[in-house]
């Protein structure tokens, strides 16, 4: 077995063990949310970490997945499993339309372009009340079921989400260790050189943007059918920032870093509740301090500090 396969088996075992041992429904819900956030972080990591293209509007695709499926099932009575491909398709179409002009931009301009897109989608969720329920939110999204298995049961939903996460990990890892994945990393390192070895950088950037959007929409679908109530605030600019933060803190260009980043950022508010009014102060401080001290993300940062201390000891 390769190292990757071993890690998948361990991951699988960890999911099953957690699912069987855990009793408390609150924790089930929290860990399921971590799973959904891991998907989001993974989606953005493919774009930001590997291809080096920032998006400050990824919550938009998350929201498009959630709202499309929510509206189709609750308002139009679709079966959720029929609504899912519709939601993914819509996210893909929008990603193509928006990505085509936006991905020409670089640096801050790309950040601002994606931010503007995210804001507009958020405003649509908030203002198009006849369809989306407006600022007060959208209710009555049905739970998922397959045959007789109802995913209303938190344990089942936990398994569903985490198996999707495991599958996505495998897919992304395969994608990265391929011709396409190398080309993505090439774009990140030097776009000029990538063109010079014959990579159609525009095309590839668009493809990975679309892939990332679809994966985010999938996360949105899972979120909507878990919570059954969605509101625009779950897909605001701050959420986009949170996704970027998960990727960066967990570690750019690291699949397992997405898991770490999503876990930390999802748990953080839970821990910060103890600070109550200090929550924002502490959150902002953590973002700044992590970025100043280990700009390459916590995973790499910790490894580096460990290696440095080891080599320092070795010298002594």
């Amino acid at each position: 077995m390769t190292r990757d396969q071993i890690s998948y088996v361990i991951f699988f075992a960890a999911i099953v063990a957690t699912g069987l041992i855990l009793k408390n429904y609150f924790y089930f819900q929290l860990i399921t949310i971590i799973g959904i956030n891991t998907l989001l972080a993974l989606a953005l990591n493919m774009l930001l970490g590997y291809a080096g293209q920032i998006s400050l509007g990824h919550a938009a695709f998350y929201g498009i997945g959630a709202y499309t499926s929510g509206i189709l099932t609750a308002t139009y009575g679709f079966n959720p499993w029929m609504a899912l491909p519709c939601a993914l398709m819509l996210a893909i179409v929008i990603a193509v339309v928006v990505g085509f002009p936006t991905l020409k931009l670089t640096g801050y301009y790309l950040g601002m372009g994606t931010l503007g897109f995210g804001m507009i989608v958020h405003i649509v969720f908030r203002e198009w009340s006849s369809v989306t329920g407006g600022a007060s939110g959208f209710m009555g999204i049905p739970p998922l079921e397959i045959g007789h298995v109802s995913f209303f049961e938190p344990r089942n939903y936990f398994f569903l989400v985490w198996f999707v996460v495991l599958l996505s990990f495998i897919l992304c890892k395969r994608l990265i260790n391929s011709r396409t994945g190398r080309a993505l990393k090439a774009i990140h390192d030097s776009e000029n050189a990538a063109k010079a070895v014959g990579i159609n950088t525009r095309n590839l950037k668009l493809k990975i943007f679309v892939f990332s959007a679809a994966l985010s929409a999938l996360a949105g679908f899972l979120y909507a059918h878990m919570i059954s109530f969605i509101s625009p605030e779950s897909f605001s600019f701050l959420v986009s920032v949170k996704i970027v933060t998960m990727v960066v803190i967990g570690g750019m260009a690291s699949i397992w870093g997405s898991l770490l980043g999503a876990s930390l950022l999802t748990m953080l508010p839970e821990w910060l509740h103890a600070f109550s009014d200090f929550e924002m102060v502490v959150y902002g401080l953590i973002l700044m301090v992590v970025m100043i001290i280990t700009p390459q993300g916590l995973t790499r940062g910790i490894i580096e500090i460990y290696e440095r201390s080891r080599s320092a000891k070795a010298k002594r």
Binding site: V248, M280, V281, V282, G284, I292
Partner: peptide
């Protein structure tokens, strides 16, 4: 990310 962090911090 740092300036976004600063923004949240200042708001807090």
């Amino acid at each position: 990310i740092i300036t976004v962090g600063a923004s949240i911090f200042l708001r807090g």
